[in-house]
């Protein structure tokens, strides 16, 4: 491991970061979006450590959400969207779990979830929006009164109030803030000074990180202080927001990491096929998660050929001409 005195207390292996900061029943937010920058290595490690009863708070998470649900780590879910684009228009284990009544869940929209993280980051108890008025998102709550007594669950899903600044009738929706126990993000770079740099779209990652009590960053590279400070306009989070920093190259595989690698179409197709069947899914978990001693072992199983195929063209950010059918 690199020697970085400024972040020596935060730099740790993945298993240690999960052991120290993720706990049974924790409220967890994960960064990324559908097939991009999901903290997959961290999700695999959470499964290997047998963490249970997670309360997952998501906007549009894809692969990491689906595998955490499929492995039985998630008890409660607040979600806007669960899909993997063309690879799984609705994430398969998510779909099964909801249809079989195995999850406590509530639906929100993407903007609503992003705003709820923003409210958490700003330290305000709720945030207004017009989005959702008239929809069944307001009509159907998913959590029972007992669940609502939990300190991490708001006592109402929404409130509709009149705009206090208008003399005319003008209704508006209030959304409760979210303050997750832990947020895990996968970033391209962390500097030796702890500064985090995310390239490409940031989704709601920064709001999720600033709303959380604890932040774990997995990253592709740890880079010198001089490099991360070359162009501070590109940087995403200062060091003081982070609690654990873990270097995990290809840590978002099989989802994409802009400028480093594309999503892995073959793997996502294989996953979908195995996730459709309960027995095959068990085999999948044994083979690809429990059977792997480390992310390096997992990557050797994925194989050099595929890792080269999905390697991003650094100028474009994705793998040009990748076979995606």
């Amino acid at each position: 491991m690199e020697r970085c005195p400024e972040i020596a207390d935060k730099l740790m292996p993945l298993d240690e970061a999960v052991r120290r900061f993720i706990f049974n029943g924790c409220q967890l937010a994960i960064g990324g979006f559908t097939v991009n920058r999901n903290p997959m290595a961290a999700a695999y490690e959470i499964i290997r450590q047998g963490i249970e009863d997670i309360h997952l708070v998501c906007h549009s998470n894809g692969q990491a959400l689906d595998i955490l649900i499929g492995a039985g780590c998630v008890k409660r879910l607040e979600i806007a969207y669960s899909g993997n684009g063309r690879f799984a228009p609705t994430c398969v284990r998510f779909k099964k779990a909801i249809e079989e009544g195995e999850l406590e869940f509530e639906d929100y929209s993407n903007y609503q979830m992003a705003l709820r993280f923003l409210a958490g980051a700003l330290g305000i108890p709720f945030i207004p929006t017009k989005s959702g008025l008239g929809s069944d998102l307001i009509k159907y709550g998913g959590f029972s009164p007992e669940i609502r007594e939990d300190e991490k669950v708001a006592n109402l899903k929404y409130a509709v109030v009149g705009n206090p600044f208008s003399s005319e009738k003008d209704e508006i929706l209030l959304l409760p803030a979210l303050t997750p126990d832990v947020t895990i993000l996968h970033a391209q770079y962390v500097g030796e000074d702890g500064t985090v740099q995310i390239n490409g779209l940031t989704f709601a990652d920064l709001e999720q990180a600033k709303a959380a009590d604890t932040v774990i960053i997995t990253c592709e590279e740890i880079v010198p202080r001089s490099f991360i400070r070359l162009d501070p306009d590109k940087n995403s989070l200062p060091s003081f927001f982070t609690d654990a920093i873990v270097k995990v190259p290809y840590g978002a595989h099989p989802t994409a990491c802009f400028k480093f690698y594309d999503y892995d179409p073959a793997y996502l197709k294989l996953y979908r096929k195995m996730a459709e069947d309960d027995n095959l899914f068990k085999e999948y978990l044994d083979e690809w998660v429990y059977g792997m001693s480390s992310h390096e072992a997992y990557l050797s199983k994925v194989g050099t050929e595929m890792l080269l195929k999905i390697k991003a063209n650094p100028a474009l950010g994705y793998a040009q001409g990748l076979e995606r059918k």
Partner: peptide, 11 residues
């Protein structure tokens, strides 16, 4: 049958 959910559609 469960689908993906709102995503950004409601918004």
């Amino acid at each position: 049958k469960r689908f993906s959910g709102s995503g950004g559609a409601c918004d």
